[in-house]
C-alpha cells in the first residue's frame, strides 16, 4: 500500500530520538564558527588550561581549544559519514540493481565477486590500507566506501528481484517500458525507505570506522577527528584533562552513532511493515 513514510517516521519513537540526537550533533557542527571564536588548528592559549569562560572545555597539550576541535571534529565525522554513505550506497545500488535487472551470467559473476568481498575483514583491510596510504578525507571516504558496500548490494538485489515480480512492473513492461525506465520510475521510488535505512547504517559504520582508524593513528595526522582526539587524550590520563578532553569526545561519538543507529532501526521498521508492532500496521 501507499504509505506516508514521513508520518510513519514521526510516529516512531526510535526515529524521533535518533533524529533528535543527530540534530544535536549536526546543528552545532554546521554553526561551528558561530559557536567558537577560535580555529581548530590555532594555538589559542596555554597548554592543559582547565575549562574557563574563554576555553569552555579547556585546552589540549599544544594549547588548542578542545571545544573548537570538538565542533570541527563533528564536521569531519559527519562529512566522512555522509560521503561514505552516499558513495557506498550508490555503488551497492548500481551493482545490486544491475545484477537483479540483467540477471543471467552477469548476475552470477557480479554477485560471486560481492560474496568474495563480503568475507574480507573490512576493519583489518582498512587499517592496513590506511597505514600505507595515510589517507586524507577524500581518500578515506573512497577507502571506507569501497569496503562497506557489498552487504548493501545483496540487500538491494534481493529487494529489486522481488519488486521485479510485482504486477505493476510487468504491466509497465507491457506498455513497452525499458529497463532504465522501470528502474527510475518504478523501482527507485519504492526502494526509498530501504535506501534511506541503508544510507543511515552506512553513515554510522563509516563514522565509527573513521574514529577507529584515527584512534589507531593510521589516518592523516592533520585530520581534526574525534578518534585522534581520543587517542591524544588517552596519553594524558594521569592528568585531570581526560575529564573535559576524553569524556565529551567519547560522549559525542556515542551520541552520533546511537542517533544514527536509532534512525536506522526506525527506517528499517518502516520499510518492512512486518517489523511494525501490531497496532501500527
Amino acid at each position: 500500500m501507499h504509505d506516508n513514510y514521513k508520518t510513519l517516521l514521526k510516529n516512531n519513537g526510535m526515529g524521533r530520538a535518533g533524529i533528535g540526537l543527530i540534530l544535536l550533533v549536526l546543528l552545532p557542527a554546521l554553526a561551528a564558527p558561530l559557536l567558537s571564536p577560535y580555529l581548530p588548528g590555532e594555538y589559542s592559549g596555554s597548554i592543559f588550561a582547565p575549562p574557563s569562560g574563554s576555553y569552555w572545555l579547556g585546552t589540549n597539550d599544544v594549547g588548542q581549544d578542545i571545544w573548537t576541535r570538538l565542533l570541527y571534529g563533528a564536521r569531519t565525522s559527519l562529512l566522512i559519514g555522509g560521503g561514505v554513505a552516499l558513495l557506498a550506497t550508490l555503488t551497492a545500488l548500481v551493482v545490486g540493481g544491475s545484477a537483479a535487472l540483467c540477471g543471467g551470467l552477469y548476475d552470477q559473476v557480479v554477485m560471486r565477486f560481492v560474496d568474495a568481498l563480503l568475507v574480507l575483514p573490512a576493519v583489518l583491510i582498512a587499517i592496513l590500507a590506511s597505514a600505507y596510504l595515510v589517507p586524507g578525507i577524500s581518500l578515506l571516504i573512497i577507502l571506507l566506501a569501497s569496503l562497506i558496500w557489498p552487504q548493501a548490494a545483496r540487500i538491494f538485489r534481493a529487494r529489486i528481484l522481488s519488486l521485479k515480480e510485482e504486477g505493476y512492473i510487468s504491466a509497465a513492461r507491457t506498455f513497452g517500458a525499458s529497463e532504465t525506465y522501470l528502474m527510475v520510475r518504478h523501482i527507485l521510488p519504492l526502494l526509498g525507505p530501504i535506501l534511506s535505512a541503508v544510507i543511515v547504517q552506512h553513515g554510522r559504520r563509516a563514522i565509527f570506522m573513521e574514529a577507529g582508524l584515527s584512534f589507531l593513528g593510521v589516518s592523516d595526522p592533520t585530520l581534526i577527528s574525534w578518534g585522534s582526539m581520543l587517542q591524544h587524550a588517552l596519553r594524558y590520563t594521569y592528568l585531570d584533562v581526560w575529564k573535559w578532553w576524553m569524556l565529551p569526545t567519547g560522549l559525542l561519538l556515542s551520541m552520533t552513532i546511537t542517533g544514527l543507529a536509532l534512525l536506522g532501526f526506525a527506517l528499517e521498521t518502516i520499510s518492512d511493515p512486518r517489523l511494525l508492532p501490531a497496532g501500527n500496521r
Binding site: M1, H2, E166, G167, Y168, S170, A171, A172, T174, F175, G176, H186, P189, L190
Partner: peptide, 21 residues
C-alpha cells in the same frame, strides 16, 4: 514498443497491476 503499441493486456489482478505510488 511497436508490439506493445498494438497489443495490450488487462491483467488479472488489477490492484497489483497498478503501482501503489
Amino acid at each position: 514498443k511497436n508490439f506493445y503499441n498494438r497489443v495490450q493486456m488487462i491483467c488479472q489482478n488489477p490492484m497489483e497491476s497498478i503501482n501503489p505510488g
